[in-house]
Amino acid sequence: MHFLELSQVNFHYPKQEKLALDNINLEIEQKSITAVIGPNGSGKTTLSKVMIGVFPATGGKILLQGDPVSELSLAEIGRSIGYVFQNPDLQLFCGTVAEEIGFGLINRGCEPDRVKEKVDFYLDYFQLAEYRNAFPLHLSQGEKQRVAIASVLAAEPEFLILDEPTIGLDTYRKKILEGYLQKIACSGRGMVLISHDMSFVNRLADRVIQMENGHIVDDGDWKGNNGYDA
């Protein structure tokens, strides 16, 4: 059984003729880093959102560990897949950075001591300790991005989908993120990585899927820049 399985998935946005995803067939294993690349508007974000049932597919079937995604609630899906949105502003909703990072843990019924411990760890790791009580939306772009990533990682889901995680990060912070993702991969948890950052992709990914115009045009474990410039 594959972790995620898409067969003949189609999707178009409401009131639009054009298919944003056209006949997508895809299997994703749990223990691998799959990168999705492609030009702006090629449907990467759409694909990832359809995968986790945020947008219901208009055709085809999506299975998450054998269960149809359409029959699972978002909370159930969120328990096995952590999703980092492309825009950090739309996923930060708590009053302080610490609350934000602890939110998922508390919802999973974690003990308060354990929550505190983990929040401290992630604040430290992503160098956010000094902003612990800051209002998340008042941070800089890169800091918001780190808070968003940290709050999804803190819940330690089995699988991750990261939509442009390196956006707004400086070189040093990118290295830190890369290190952490590598560690996750080593512990046997996989991820889908959507990115325009080819060097980041090349260093991390086992498999690269290239999209264009709602289609998958290339899928392989090749590494290198196949004529597509980030």
Partner: peptide, 18 residues
């Protein structure tokens, strides 16, 4: 749309709204 987005984000972090 934005509100819907945030509601989605909250659910994905494990809140069963229902």
């Amino acid at each position: 749309d934005e509100f819907v987005n945030v509601v989605t984000a909250v659910q994905l972090r494990g809140v069963e709204l229902k």
